[in-house]
Structures are given as structure tokens and as C-alpha cells.
């Protein structure tokens, strides 16, 4: 099972992004500065942005979805309970998971951005997909909710997850690191070998590696454990 960007070129006027690589099973983290083309690449991989050249190949992927940065775009249910049902999920259980107990009769689009994002991600990750593409899933969430999303990602219900983010504080365990650099998608490799080469790594990771620690993954707890091991 894989999603392959085959000599892809994405264009917006004079702006271009090149992407060539294979996203196999596991959790892939794609980072890059704001405006580098993360959303465009996410849309192209999801098949909703037409590449200027090249193509996307899917192997073994029948059910693919994309979580857009703005959760409002996905809403089809007038009330929260209708929205949950539109994802074919049980209302009470989903409300509990999203931390929205008792809000089933609230109007979906009157929820705050953070609440709506929580609801949307709970519904999206509550379904079974072959491949999930998440565009800035942590935007608008507090630390507790970011950790909950990370836990849902790490549960492994979806064989292939690609996360596009510039989050620097709370990240899930990942298998492969990618970066967008100078108009091209670059694979830094598998975790943990990719960590030293990751230019956009969070500060806690670079600090740990600078001190000689070797984190096993990219989470804060991995950096802390690596430092503890070193000083033990």
C-alpha cells in the first residue's frame, strides 16, 4: 500500500513546488515554513488539486480522506448530532471523545473554532480509512487536545497517515520525516535516523541532539527520555 508522488510539479502562477517520493504505510510528517506549499501538496495528494505535471499513483488505497485546515468546510450537519451522524458514528460516544458531552443539540457552526476542530478530527479519525491526510491538524487546539489527536494518530487505525504541519510543541510518533525546502519536497528518511537531518525540527529535539542524546522518536517525551538515558 502506498501513495506515490511521481515527478509532481504543482503551480500557482509563478510559484512552483516539486515533489517526488513514495508514502508507504506508517505515519509521515511533512513540515515546512508557512507558504511553502504544504496545503497545496496535501490537496494534490488527496486528488483535489490538479498538478501541472507528473501524477499521483495510489496502490491498495481505496478509502482516502483529507482533513482541511478549516473544519467549517467539512460541515454538513446543522446540529452537532447531525454532523456526527453524517460521519456514520454513534453520537454519545463521539461527543464524549470530542469532549463535547451534552452539546448534541448545539448548532454545529456556532461551536468555537477549537471545538469544531475537535469534533471534526474525532469524527474523521473515528472512521476507518486506508489513507488519511491531515493538513495542520493541530491548528486551533490547546495542548491537551493536541495530545489527544496525537494519541488517536498513534492508535494505528489507519495504515497510512500523512501529517502536514508546522507544529513545534506537540507531535505524534512518526515513521518518516519529510520537509519542503526551496520549492521541493525532500525526504529526510526514517525516524530516528532522520532526526539529525531534520532542519525544521522542534527546539526540544535539536537541543537534545546537540547535547548528544539520541531520541527514539520525535515527541517531547522521546527527547526527555533520551536525555535521561544519557545522564543516567
Amino acid at each position: 500500500m502506498y501513495l506515490k508522488a511521481d515527478r509532481l510539479t504543482l503551480s500557482h502562477g509563478e510559484w512552483n513546488l516539486r515533489a517526488d517520493g513514495v508514502f508507504g504505510q506508517g505515519v509521515h510528517l511533512v513540515t515546512g515554513p508557512v507558504g511553502s506549499g504544504k496545503t497545496t501538496l496535501a490537496s494534490a495528494l488527496a486528488g483535489i488539486f490538479e498538478p501541472a505535471s507528473g501524477r499521483i499513483n495510489r496502490d491498495g488505497i481505496l478509502h482516502l480522506t483529507l482533513s482541511m485546515q478549516f473544519p467549517e468546510y467539512h460541515v454538513t450537519g446543522f446540529l452537532v448530532k447531525d454532523e456526527i451522524r453524517s460521519w456514520h458514528l454513534p453520537v454519545a460516544e463521539t461527543l464524549r471523545q470530542a469532549g463535547l458531552d451534552g452539546r448534541q443539540n448545539a448548532k454545529t457552526l456556532t461551536l468555537s473554532r477549537g471545538e469544531l476542530k475537535r469534533l471534526h478530527l474525532t469524527c474523521l479519525l473515528g472512521n476507518l480509512w486506508d489513507a488519511v491526510i491531515l493538513d495542520e491538524p493541530f491548528a486551533g487546539l490547546d495542548c491537551r487536545e493536541k495530545k489527544r489527536v496525537c494519541a488517536a494518530i498513534e492508535e494505528g487505525n489507519h495504515p497510512l497517515i500523512i501529517i502536514f504541519t508546522h507544529e513545534q510543541a506537540v507531535l505524534p510518533a512518526a515513521d518518516v520525516i519529510w520537509e519542503i525546502e526551496e520549492g521541493a519536497l525532500v525526504c529526510r528518511g526514517k525516524v530516528p535516523e532522520a532526526i539529525p537531518a531534520w532542519k525544521g525540527a522542534p527546539r526540544y529535539l535539536t537541543r537534545a541532539t546537540e547535547e548528544g542524546a539520541q531520541p527514539k522518536n520525535i515527541r517531547l517525551q522521546d527527547a526527555t527520555e533520551a536525555l535521561c538515558r544519557m545522564h543516567a
Binding site: S43, A46, I48, T65, L66, M68, F70, Y73, H74, T76, S86, W87
Partner: peptide
Amino acid sequence: RDIKNALKLK
């Protein structure tokens, strides 16, 4: 455009 795409995906 984005809403239509999101609905298509859903």
C-alpha cells in the same frame, strides 16, 4: 471550491 472538495471527500 474548498467546501465543494470537502463535501466530495466526505
